[in-house]
Nucleic acid binder design. Structure first.
Lengths: 215, 215
DNA sequence: ACAGATACTAAACACCGTTCATTAACTAAA
DNA sequence: TTTAGTTAATGAACGGTGTTTAGTATCTGT
């Protein structure tokens, strides 16, 4: 039965077409300004057609939200070649900031927007405590920190607390920028603040911990 | 002309009634779920009436946004009695987290939501680089940091960078919580993470800087 | 008592996400 | 090949949103 398979393939392609178009429009004009009717118009289908492929708008958003996490995980793999765990942790932070600022709409979706959370809650209630895709990236960070601990950093600190602290720190930086709370500073100074903050973090949170032990 | 004054007073009272009702509803049911019609119904006026007192919904949001900053500034004054600048800086962070978690809707409005920013941009274009109300609180933090520097902390660090770093750090913590990115951890562990992160900050960003100089 | 300003609103407008009855196109069996 | 049944797509509607406007009362000063 080659027909069944072809149909399924077409269905998948249509889903992908909708998702890609949606994301393209989001990137172009910003999230808040895009409606289902915009997406439908762009792919030259009726708005009702979209409902044959997605339950509602939230499901589109949630799917893109998952794609964002896949992409972030791919970015995280790029720092693996860095062997020194302390250096890698710094690169980790740097990479996170770059990911966020180069893919602000994805980042917004993944860590700021309310929309995808509703769907996640729904799924947890239905499927009973599903695995959260973001946890994989958080564990990746924790592993990095554990290795730093073996190298002598973060003594007397809980792994989870250290990971959360660093995450919150870089999230704070990028989310203030993405949500335009730094615009008073101007573009050039923002760049300095980001670079300065990362170095500040490296000196005080990462390297200092070791120096203290060595003295 | 006592009547003119009475009329103006009534106008102000109506504005306040609308704002208070709006905020009350926001706090009760969450921001996204409140419409102008809800507010109008609650104060028993027609939706159109609101437009006699506010240009549009954004102006209501923007006004509440300003009220939030007034409140934050009031909270900031509460730490002034703490004389040791390092201790005060820690209390500063603690206070900020408390403010955010006890007034999540205000905090969301002030530092996360996109809505009020549009109006701010408009005003900047029209009035030409207006004073940003949030800057006052940021300067307050910078003053605190300057005093810490006099006490020997934050050597070789730009005041602005240090202030931005600490701000981003606490903002990261609370915004991840407010936007429900920590729910996997559970309520009790979140409390531990917050407390742990603040202590982590104190040890590594504030106190460590001094110890290094003393050795 | 009357003219003019003021406060208010019903009704409409243009959108939004979503649903549903209906139509058109394709598939499988007679 | 015809026919019955499934599938894909849509036009039109529904109830909701923020917002505008034309019109109606009420109050003010002469």
């Amino acid at each position: 039965m080659g027909i069944k398979e072809r149909k399924e393939l077409e269905k998948k392609e249509m889903r992908k077409l909708i998702l890609d178009t949606a994301m393209k429009l989001f990137l172009e004009k910003g999230f808040e300004n895009i409606t289902l009717r915009n997406i439908a118009e762009k792919i030259e289908y009726s708005p009702a057609t979209i409902y044959l492929y997605f339950k509602d708008k939230d499901e589109i958003i949630y799917t893109l939200h998952r794609e964002g996490f896949e992409e972030l995980y791919r970015w995280q793999q790029k720092i693996l070649p860095v062997k020194d765990p302390l250096e890698r942790l710094y690169r980790h932070a740097e990479m996170y900031v770059s990911f966020a600022l180069e893919n602000p709409e994805y980042y917004d979706l993944m860590f700021i927007k309310r929309a995808p959370i509703n769907r996640i809650k729904e799924m947890k209630l239905k499927d009973g405590m599903r695995w959260d895709i973001g946890m994989r990236s958080f564990d990746f960070l924790k592993e990095n920190i554990k290795e730093c601990m073996k190298a002598g950093a973060f003594r007397n600190t809980d792994v989870c607390v250290a990971a959360f602290s660093l995450w919150a720190y870089v999230h704070g930086i990028v989310s203030l920028i993405i949500r335009e709370r730094c615009d008073v500073f101007g573009e050039e100074q923002i760049r300095c603040l980001v670079k300065g903050s990362l170095d500040f973090m490296q000196q005080n949170m990462i390297v200092n911990n070791i120096k203290k032990e060595e003295q």
